[in-house]
Amino acid sequence: MKLFADDAWRTTWNYFKESKGGLWGLGFLGLVMICVIFADVIAPFDPSLQNRDALLLPPIWTEAGHWPYILGTDAVGRDMLSRLIYGARYSMFIGFVVVSLAVIAGTLLGLLAGYYQGWVDTIIMRLMDVILAFPSLLLALGLVAVLGPGLVNAMYAIALVMLPHFVRLTRANVLSEKNRDYVVASRIVGASNWRLMFNSILPNCMAPLIVQATLSFSNAILDAAALGFLGMGAQPPIPEWGAMLAEAREFISRAWWVVTFPGLAILLTVLSINLVGDALRDALDPRMRRS
């Protein structure tokens, strides 16, 4: 199944290039990806290695800081920089898994609802309404309370919370594509329902789905970090950025660096993804262009 012609990719890229923000975002994400892939090589220390002689060491550019702890150490003497680098793995992994789950399930449900309509549609959409009636983070918290705290459960919870957006988007697109000439034509030549849904309709709703997926990616990272911070997501000593912040809270008046850097990492990563998302939206769909 080929979702885009080569030509479409090139056009998209040409538009994407116009956005400076999008390029900056892409650049920073590249950096994050390098950390993700080569964490073992780049990170100066093992993220859980404790050094009792270097507790709460400030970053290297302050007076008390010293080599090789570039960004200082935390309360048990672990190297901040190494933990941040390994933390990138968790955030990107969370984003990837959550969005994949939500996209796959959401697209399937949306296709079903939009294609068959009737009671299938009603049940699916009412369910989605129920999910949407809860504020997302709160529902995720509730689900984690049921499933028990932990990174994996947090990911399931966040994926479920995001589901309705994909279902609604796919369904709306299916409804508008369904009666287009090319779909009617495929039906006339005897294409089966599934074939129609996957080969004709789905590729034509790809653009908004990609944009939504990008924006959900950043939301997933934010929500996972929030759950980690509240003690409901990744559990210490995992160097997940949100969990690192939770551990750092009590040192707020003594060690600014343990508080500042994990949050900055979250902010920059999320901001980059959102920049890419905005640029992608502008590039993929002229109708959705902001300016």
């Binding site: 929030a226 509240l230 949100g242 912040l245 750092a248 707020i252 949050g263 901001l271």
Partner: peptide
């Protein structure tokens, strides 16, 4: 709009800690 996107991307639990660190502590 740059500020707005930054605000939109903000992990507010960290933002709160940062402000406490600056204005309170």
């Amino acid at each position: 709009m740059g500020s707005a996107l930054t605000g939109y991307s903000m992990p507010i639990f960290w933002w709160g800690l940062l402000l406490i660190m600056l204005f309170s502590t």
